[in-house]
């Protein structure tokens, strides 16, 4: 514990556990977020996303592990750590009976913005979040989209280093989702952001990094593209030079290709044609070999479509596999009890 590094990571979590009574919400989570990164925190409902965020913001205390925000331990100096954070809780609870302006003023005051800078700070937050038209309105009267903007405005009014957004787009209509995403992307240009979601495209839209959490554990960590390019599908339709090709022979031919893991037959509307769906091994691309093999066998390719295994499927694979494992681990105990 000699000199601290010039700039500690914005978030540093090590071996974090959280028990709510007998529920083990977090089972040892470790990750770091460097300054400036925009991280998507992905996981099915009940995975532990909110719990992790509530611990980061100090709303609940960890059972075990180390949690630091900008180098400040959340356990040792909770108030100090909180000054660095802007937080949008899940469901964005707000004081319905306050005016937008009144509310932001309250937050600015309690966030210790000097009296002569309060006006400016509110103006900036209002402008960034597009709240000009509703400044004087009661929060209770606002649409869901505007409420979300108010939630974001209160999170940025003190210009924090770290934004923690718990499901910022859940419950919005598609137009509002787009608006809020754009807004978050703007904010992400200058701040470290960690946002949780169970909607996958969101991460591809906004985040440079995805952390996938399932059953209280991190199951994947990487760039969204990297996570989604592992493995993929190739859909193809082939026909013979004269009439329909032989199904068994074609299937065997495809199966023999080096990077093909599985071959499934599909239905097709094309006359005298066969359709297949290939699963590739890892991130390999068997298209060249495939094309050559088809030519050799005097088959004609009518269509070919390569699809990366979407983040969606990676996610489902990871989270369901993990759920299965956890169930195995848990059952002997719960049965004994």
């Amino acid at each position: 514990m000699s000199d601290a590094p010039a700039s500690p990571p914005m978030i540093q979590i090590e071996g974090l556990t959280k028990h709510y009574g007998r529920t083990h919400a977090l089972r040892g989570i470790t990750f770091e977020v460097p300054k400036g990164q925009v991280v998507g925190f992905l996981g099915p409902n009940g995975a532990g996303k909110s719990t992790t965020m509530k611990i980061l913001t100090g709303f609940v205390e960890a059972t075990g592990g180390i949690v630091k925000v900008a180098g400040i331990s959340v356990a040792d100096d909770p108030v100090g750590a909180r000054t660095r954070i802007g937080y949008l809780p899940e469901n964005n609870p707000l004081y319905e009976d306050m005016m937008v302006e009144e509310y932001l003023e309250y937050i600015a005051r309690i966030r210790r913005i000097p009296a002569d800078k309060v006006r400016g700070a509110i103006d900036t937050a209002v402008a960034r979040c597009g709240l000009q038209k509703v400044r004087g309105k009661d929060i209770g009267e606002l649409s869901k989209g505007f409420r979300q903007r108010v939630g974001l405005a209160q999170a940025i009014v003190h210009d924090p280093d770290l934004l923690i957004l718990d499901e910022p787009t859940t419950g919005l209509d598609p137009n509002q989702v787009v608006e809020i995403r754009n807004l978050i992307r703007e904010l992400g240009k200058e701040k470290t952001v960690i946002l949780s979601t169970h909607v996958l495209p969101e991460v591809q839209h906004m985040c440079g990094r995805a952390l996938i959490i399932s059953e209280g554990k991190i199951v994947a960590d990487g760039a969204p593209d990297q996570l989604s390019s592992d493995g993929g599908h190739i859909d193809l339709v082939v026909t013979g030079k004269r009439g329909a090709p032989d199904l068994a022979a074609t299937r065997a031919l495809l199966k023999a290709l080096p990077d093909v893991a599985e071959v499934h037959e599909r239905t097709t509307g094309e006359k005298d044609a066969l359709a297949f769906s290939l699963t590739t091994k890892g991130s390999a691309d068997p298209r060249r070999a495939l094309f050559a093999a088809l030519v050799d066998a005097e088959l004609v390719l009518l269509s070919l479509d390569k699809k990366a295994l979407g983040l969606e499927e990676t996610f489902r694979k990871l989270t369901t596999a993990e759920a299965g494992k956890a169930e195995h681990a848990d059952h002997p105990h719960s049965k004994a009890a």
Binding site: G58, F59, I85, Y87, P93, R111
Partner: peptide
Amino acid sequence: GTFEGLMTLP
């Protein structure tokens, strides 16, 4: 739920 906002202020 506003309690969460309150308790996560510094």
